[in-house]
């Protein structure tokens, strides 16, 4: 369906002009230009710029730090996405189970999604403070730990502190989407499964999840993409430390570019990031296609 573009070429040109201008000048050109910079030693600190071939990439791939950062990113983004998705889906299932005042609960939970990242960064610094933080206090009360955890110094602990902040912020988003999708499942389907004697878990496994899996995947993927870009919390709280435990690709690229002023190397990191992204997208599309065919 739809109108033929030939009917109104001028009108079409006019309505596409603003976005073509914006996207062309400020997305396409910068990406292409930055990929080009990856093969130079560009730096705003020096006026000259010379072609250095693959030197930046060779350095990057030989340097252990880059692989460490890559792994940290995958770990932090992956763990946060999985936790947020599981909790978001669980909450949506709970809220749709016929409890009273579900709308109020939903609205209350949604407040979490409203909290700005800069506030989460400050708030997490307070919650996870070593000596006076609420988290250490509660964990000690419950008896899970005996001495305060050094959240911002222990490598594993700092990763989990960051992951918890990411996951916390994303739960409402996943929940809202899952809720909308769950409400869209025809009730007869679920009812007939129940009549056949399917337990709660069986209904989830054989009826609901197969219907939900695409939406859950899309929501999780969208969230993961956002996590990849997000770095306010890490910038304010840890600056990538301790050592490199919370150094993620976005902060690493940013610091290389705007603290070391090594635009060449930073562009190389961004380019590798872009390549990995495309590889992942290709893989995803292929798997999704195969599943749809099957």
């Amino acid at each position: 369906m739809g109108f033929s573009p030939r009917q109104a070429p001028v009108f079409l040109a006019a309505i596409f002009a603003p976005s073509i201008l914006l996207v062309g000048l400020f997305i396409v050109y910068p990406v292409v230009n930055s990929v080009g910079l990856a093969f130079t030693d560009a730096s705003p600190l020096s006026s000259g710029r010379s072609f250095v071939g693959l030197e930046n990439f060779v350095y990057l791939l030989e340097d252990g730090e880059f692989w460490e950062v890559l792994w940290n990113t995958v770990f932090i983004v992956g763990a946060a996405t999985i936790i947020a998705t599981a909790c978001g889906y669980g909450l949506a299932t709970l809220l749709i189970s016929g409890i009273r005042a579900a709308a109020i609960f939903r609205a209350a939970i949604f407040q979490v999604w409203v909290v700005p990242w800069i506030v989460i960064a400050i708030l997490w610094g307070w919650l996870f403070s070593q000596d006076y933080g609420l988290v250490n206090y509660l964990l000690m009360q419950v008896g899970l730990i005996e001495t305060p955890v050094k959240w911002m110094f222990d490598q594993k602990a700092s990763q989990w502190a960051i992951i918890s902040g990411y996951a916390w912020r994303a739960i409402p988003f996943i929940m809202v989407i899952c809720l909308a999708a769950l409400q869209g499942i025809p009730s007869e389907l679920v009812e007939s499964a129940a009549i056949d004697g399917a337990s709660f878990l069986q209904r989830q496994r054989y009826v609901i999840l197969p219907l939900m899996q695409n939406i859950i995947m899309v929501a999780a993927l969208l969230q993961a993409v956002r996590f990849f870009q997000e770095m306010t919390m890490i910038f304010v709280l840890t600056q990538g430390g301790p050592i490199n435990a919370t150094m993620v690709l976005s902060l690493y690229t940013y610091k290389t570019a705007f603290e070391d002023w090594d635009f060449g190397l930073a562009s190389a990191i961004g380019t590798v990031w872009l390549i990995l992204l495309m590889a992942f997208a290709l893989l995803y599309v292929r798997v999704a296609l195969r599943r749809n065919l099957a």
């Binding site: 000596d131 006076y132 911002m152 840890t238 600056q239 990538g240 430390g241 301790p242 050592i243």
Partner: peptide, 15 residues
């Protein structure tokens, strides 16, 4: 008050 006394307050953040 539940908080330790340190010998030297040495800065060791990632900075």
């Amino acid at each position: 008050d539940g908080a330790p006394i340190y010998g030297v307050a040495l800065r060791t953040a990632r900075n």
